[in-house]
Design a protein around this nucleic acid. Sequence first.
RNA 1: GUCCGGUUCGUCUAGGGGUUAGGACACCGCCCUUUCACGGCGGCAACACGGGUUCAAAUCCCGUACCGGAUACCA
Length: 546
Amino acid sequence: MTVRVRFAPSPTGYLHIGSARTALFNYLYARHTGGKFLLRIEDTDLARSTEESTQSILQGLEWLGFAPDEEIVFQSDNADKHRAIALKLLEEGKAYRDFTPKEEKVEGSVKDAIKERARAAGDQKSMRDNPFRDITEVEAETRIANGEPFAIRLKVPMEGTTSFEDGVYGLQERDYAETEDLVLLRSDGHPLYNLAVVCDDIEMGITHVIRGQDHLTNTHKQILIYRALGVEPPTFAHLPLIMAPNKGKLSKRKHGEVVSMTTYRDAGFLAEAFRNFLALLGWSAGEEKEIYSLDELISKFSLEGIHRSNAVFNFTEGDARKWTDDKAMWMNAEYIRTMPLGDLLPHVKAELKSAKLWREEYEPDGRALVATVPSTESQAFEASTEIADRPEAIAIEPLEVGTYDWYIRTIDAIRSRFFTLKDFSSQGRAYFSEDFDFNHAAVEKNLKAFPELMEWLPELSMRFRHEFGNEGSLPFTEENIEGVIKAFTAEKGTKLGVIMNGARTLLTGVSVGPSMLTVFEIIGLQRTMVRLLGRIAWNQAEVVAE
RNA sequence: GUCCGGUUCGUCUAGGGGUUAGGACACCGCCCUUUCACGGCGGCAACACGGGUUCAAAUCCCGUACCGGAUACCA
């Protein structure tokens, strides 16, 4: 029997980080077993479901790369079938009509109201004492004739236990006494969650249900429905939950955008990096390794590797530097600086395009296209190493700014200190445009702290012109630049760092980046000379500093 | 309240009768670059508590505490 799993979000918000991980585990399990990964939108709560959040969820899944193997099922489309099944159970005496008037919606927290009601009932109350559980058909007919509304509840047997072997938590047992006669159909004829899920899972041929641990008790209820229907339940596996830093619930209301998948897409995260991070939240292959390609995750994934304890998604609210989990950020940076360059290029292109920094010269003759649209990972690697090898081979002569070769070398150089794709257009802006800002802290630390630089740096500009700017001069390459800079530094009797850091800030607007010699070279002689003169920059620095 | 589940460095985790309790992130230090948030090396830092079983318990059993989930005519 081939494995069929499903991810079944309810469209009442965007794709939550916990849901994303559930989707990931389902996806990995399907791929690992050669099964099918299906998607079902549980939009039976018309009041709360929105088209907007359905789209947001779909976008999140698309970004993560989890395309369903079959057509998407919308649960609300099956409401008639669910109703029919509830009626069938009623007919068979496995369900009954409950004429108890519907309770009014309570004010405030629903959760608290439920807790309060349960406490008030104490342990005296039996789950089987519904007065309508065993009324005669005649009485029921009379009430119906009187126009009394009724809900349909499952008639849970008086004695027994539901049990199942959970793929993660092991044997789970629950006495019938702990389970209420759950409502299948509302008095307005609307099918409820547990009924809808069971019916759809049966119809979709689901073999393994992998979902959050918060569904553990639902599973017992659902098994009761499977039994009433005479259908063998699928295998269940429940996942530990992802918690907020205070070990409480991670929610949009309390924590905002950090929990939404689209936030990470928009913040310049790579889907492969985020997937990798997510996979390690609650699962481990039992080895000392952090970076896993999707293929590796698929081949190593197993239910046995899933933990039973909840994991904290660690971030600091109000701290711009730690707005999301450190490890997620590190993982993204790690991918950006170590992944095959050819795989990174399309992402950088998209980022530069959206920042209006892209130039067609960066991708002539469809060269990058060939290298970056490989059909397998190994091909991607070959293609990208080929590209990555090029810069070194041609570094003997300075590259012409704005060319394909220059672009490749520049991206490869600057990616080493970047954390997100956004950095290519923000921190890296000075490489692609004359219109860039100066970081306040960098100006303070590297320029204003050394007033002499206001003289020295323009002087260095003239020195560069003298050394490299004439017919037959040495090429403006790292090795040659180093010689000139060192001599210049010695002349001024200052530390190399002062000159280097000052130049870095004047040239790039920031205080970090690749080796400064590399920066000089890829900024190029012309731009270096102009920027070192620094009129505009010093002026701007003043403005920014104030 | 009741039922279910959990508890190894700040966080993610490895280990599951004998380990100097390992790795990663974060943090700190040193080195490299007479420059930085790259890189290299190192440091800080954990078995919730109490009983038992055992020659030996972080590991097995029981209890306690704490945390989480569930307990809807929500999903």
